[in-house]
Design a protein around this nucleic acid. Structure first.
Length: 844
RNA sequence: GCCCGGAUGGUGAAAUCGGCAGACACAGCGGACUUAAAAUCCGCAGACCUUAACCGGUCGUGGGGGUUCAAGUCCCCCUCCGGGCACCA
């Protein structure tokens, strides 16, 4: 503030807190120092700390969810700087994707232009919020400098058979006009269109073989102790590992040695199998239906019914029904001849699409067998003598096999293993593991994404684009309004090329990559975004990784967070990095809601961050986002609450400005002096507050209570104004109190903290000062109040010396009048004293 | 059906290791300042009963049971809400 204005303000009755003036002025000063938020070289000697918030999709406007996410990350980054870490705190843009195409069609703007404009707009908003990003490391995924490495990774994966092409049944969103990965289907609907049912289509597409890492992705979860249990559970469910066995049944009387392989988790019950059930789209069913005029319509009908049910997400509610095929299979364990059925509850997409039906020991098989009168044969019981328990009997922990030939008497858990081995030794089966996780389909029939670097030659087939020809540039000026097929297929100059092998005519792949490819490795790019010969340098990545703290919404628990774990393992196997997981700690913040519902345009309950900042300032808006609820819980946005934080900051501003001029001009030397009672009380509160904030930053992150404790400190300072005015609290103590107050505010309200830091006559940037150390001795109370209970009910609160021992406390409690009144005429049976906590007298 | 969270005043919430339930705020009420209002400052504030008032008492953390001198917190059972998986063989 210019000297003249300051003097004028001092003459006024009161200096008003004016964030609209303070914040842009401080921001301009910070902007002048390009190195302010820059990560330092490895040689800095400081320990590194990589704090990362999930990069946004550049929709054009920040929403409150962003504000909350970034306020948490920013507070942590600033705190770690103050603790002497070399902090990496970058930001970027997940900028490929469908909304750019939709906007392009609607507004007649090219996706690239629309996207880059939005980025500029959002960068401006982040700047106004005062977020501490190292913009020199900004990553924009839709630019060739970035997406060329997507193509490079694709080729690396192709070399390792991790990228491959196959025909399969895929999810198709009719609104997106493209294929979706399984992870992008939420309860049968498109992840981007909650109201749109996903259809199934048979298409030839590119896949990433994430299933090769299924076990490692699953086992790694146990070691991710810094991740929320919820996210780990969701990923475990998603991977869906199931141990069991495959058993091959020969088809009876079949001239061409046909067989059917079933998957079962209960091979021990195979002597109880009374039929085989096949999915209606099992290959052998298709084969039979092709010449069996009776079977074909039944199969058709069942398929149609399954499709309808799947489309409405009601697969589980379909009444069970089946059709006998008239064919029989031979149980390899006992030679028994079992009827083969097709059944609508058997799914082709899981296991082998065929099951053995054991009605006595499986709920579904029991229901089915009862309906069709199939035999029900018990082969497992708690022991050899009890066989009158209700069916189906599914317990396997304390059960043995009965009526199972040579296996009779064998405990179930042992039989599972032995019988699988037996099957393998005799060539009709083996122990196996089935996963729910499927390979990641990455082809998208859209324009605004990374072109897949493959060309098709009539002579040489599918060929990878040579690395030297990367990037395959995404052409501009493409007609994207026509939704039939991939837009790139309508650009002849893109499509027509030459074969890298034979130099003959060839055509390019016209699908683009799923946008989740971009976000699978972007955080590595931050370590060296300007590398032009590799996606990033290994030394850089090995220095910064793993991410120390990753912060984002829980909605990515099984999309981004499983893909990026997969990608990290692939990069490790390529030799680019050493770590096997991307992030040591993950924090998933709660949603921002308004009137009990998630903010959305359709509900009309959206609160604009711009409005909040314009009205109350960035400090108050950010601080409210941290104060209103612990960060992992949903936060109800109440504007009155922001106003409350603004009032609190005004109070801080007023009291500091009141004393700052005198403190600024007085001697800065530390004088040895006896502390007054008031001074001691205030310093005690200060160090208690400091200890609380320091503890919370170490992991619990309940910034709401941190801010509450700063409020208590400020309340105490306000209440002590007369003691400060009179000099009872010395200027030295005052200076220390206000100095540390600004330091404590720095992570949460950096603008006003900086302003007051300067007003107090300090040099430099407040959030580069060392975080003050909480002094346990200063924080210690001399005298504490402890409750006295009689039979567990509170009777009085007595004051005792902080270090009082059990006997002393007992004596004080007994001496208390109120307590004596309660105890009179009764016998004290027992006295419980918890030093520092309470006294409880048990009387009769 | 299986798995993971959650439920505390009018509202957001606090109680981190079994030890005073409701810190800190918001909204509300009362007061000071003001011609007035805003802003600011000071104070009250879980519910119920009792009292003229003070005092005093009872109940109270979704419900029911239990362990304990002591339970929002631990154990068992249940309800409701949010989320994930699901005819997964």
């Amino acid at each position: 503030m210019p000297e003249a204005t300051r003097n004028a303000d001092q003459n006024a009755a009161e200096v008003r807190y004016n964030p609209a003036e303070i914040e842009p002025r401080q921001q301009a000063k910070w902007d002048a120092d390009a190195s302010l938020y820059a990560a330092e070289p490895h040689s800095s000697g400081k320990p590194k700390y990589y704090v990362l918030e999930m990069l946004p999709y550049p929709s054009g406007k920040l929403h409150m969810g962003h504000v909350r996410n970034y306020s948490i990350g920013d507070a942590l980054a600033r705190y770690q700087w103050m603790n002497g870490f070399n902090v990496l705190h970058p930001m970027g843009w997940d900028s490929f994707g469908l909304p750019a195409e939709n906007a392009a069609i609607k507004n007649n703007t090219a996706p690239r232009k629309w996207t880059l404009n939005n980025i500029a707009e959002m960068r401006k908003q982040m700047h106004r919020m005062g977020l501490s990003y190292d913009w020199a490391r900004e990553v924009t995924t839709c630019l060739p400098a970035y997406y060329r490495w997507n193509q490079w990774f694709f080729l690396e994966m192709y070399k390792r058979d991790l990228a491959f092409r196959k025909k399969s049944r895929l999810n198709w969103c009719p609104k997106c006009n493209t294929v979706l990965a399984n992870e992008q289907v939420v309860s049968g609907h498109c992840w981007r269109h909650e109201d749109t049912l996903v259809e199934q289509r048979d298409l030839t597409q590119w896949f990433f073989r994430i299933t090769r890492y299924a076990d490692e992705l699953l086992d790694g979860l146990d070691k991710l102790e810094g991740w929320p249990e919820k996210v780990r559970t969701m990923q475990r469910n998603w991977i869906g590992r199931s141990e069991g066995a495959e058993v091959t049944f020969a088809v009876d009387g079949c001239t061409d040695n046909m067989s059917i392989t079933v998957f079962t988790t209960r091979i021990d019950t195979i002597f109880g199998a009374t039929s085989l059930q096949l999915a209606p789209d099992h290959p052998i069913v298709k084969h039979w239906a092709s010449f069996d005029g009776e079977l074909a319509p039944a199969v058709e009908e069942m398929l149609a019914q399954q499709k309808t049910a799947r489309d409405t997400d009601a697969l589980g509610e379909l009444p069970k029904y089946g059709v006998p095929t008239g064919r029989f299979a031979i149980n390899p364990f006992n030679g028994e001849r079992l009827p083969i059925w097709i059944a609508n509850y058997v799914l082709s997409g899981y296991g082998t699409g065929a099951v053995m039906s054991v009605p006595a020991h499986d709920e579904r098989d029991f229901e089915f067998a009862t309906k069709y009168g199939l035999p029900i044969r018990r082969v497992v019981a708690p022991n050899l003598d009890t066989d009158d328990l209700p069916l189906p009997y599914t317990d396997k922990t304390e059960a043995v096999l009965i009526d199972s030939g040579e296996w009779t008497g064998e405990p179930v858990l042992e039989a599972l293993e032995k019988m699988a081995k037996h099957a393998e030794a005799n060539g009709f089966g083996r122990a196996t593991v089935t996963y729910r996780l499927k390979d990641w389909g990455v082809s998208r029939q859209r324009y605004w994404g990374t072109p897949i670097p493959i060309v098709y030659c009539e002579k040489c087939g599918a060929q990878p684009v040579p690395e030297s020809q990367l990037p395959v540039l995404l052409p501009e000026n493409v007609d994207i309004a026509d939704v039939n097929g991939s837009p790139l297929s309508r650009v002849p100059e893109f499509v027509n090329t030459t074969c890298p092998v034979c130099d003959g005519p060839a055509t390019r792949e016209t699908d683009t990559m799923d946008t989740f490819v971009d976000s699978s490795w972007y955080f590595y790019s931050y370590t060296e975004p300007k590398n032009s010969s590799a996606p990033f340098g290994s030394d850089e990545a090995n220095y910064w990784f793993e991410i120390d703290q990753y912060i984002g919404g829980v909605e990515h628990a099984i999309l981004h967070l499983i893909y990026s774990r997969f990608w990290t393992k692939v990069m490790r196997d390529i030799g680019l990095i050493k770590n096997s997981e991307p992030a040591t700690r993950l924090f998933t913040q709660g949603m921002v809601i308004k009137n009990g519902a998630k903010m959305s345009k359709s509900k009309g309950n959206v609160v604009s961050p711009d409005d909040m900042i314009a009205k109350y300032g960035a400090d108050a808006t950010r601080m409210y986002a941290l104060f209103a609820a612990p960060p992992d819980r949903d936060l109800e946005w109440q504007e009155e609450g922001v106003a409350g934080i603004s009032r609190f900051l005004s109070r801080v501003y007023r009291i500091v400005m009141k004393y700052a001029p005198a403190l600024r001009s007085s001697d800065h030397g530390i004088t040895q002096e006896a502390l007054s009672t008031a001074g001691q009380r205030l310093l005690r509160k200060q160090h208690q507050t400091l200890a609380k904030i320091t503890l919370d930053f170490s992991g619990r992150w309940h910034f709401n209570t941190c801010i509450a404790s700063v409020m208590m400190l400020v309340n105490e300072l306000v209440a002590s104004e007369s003691a400060m005015d009179s000099g009872e609290v010395s200027p030295t103590t005052q200076r220390e109190l206000f100095r540390s107050l600004t330091l404590m505010l720095a992570p949460f309200a950096p603008f006003v903290a900086q302003e007051l830091w300067e007003e107090l006559g300090n040099e430099g940037v407040v959030f580069r000062q060392p975080w003050p150390k909480a002094d346990a001795e200063l924080a210690r109370e001399d005298e504490i109040e402890i409750p006295v209970q009689v039979n567990g009910k509170l009777v009085n609160v007595v004051k005792v010396a902080a270090e009082a021992d059990v006997e002393a406390i007992k004596a004080i409690a007994h001496a208390d009048e109120k307590v004596a009144g309660r105890v009179a005429g009764k016998t004290v049976v027992k006295v419980i004293v918890v030093p520092g906590k309470l006294v409880n007298l048990v009387v009769k």
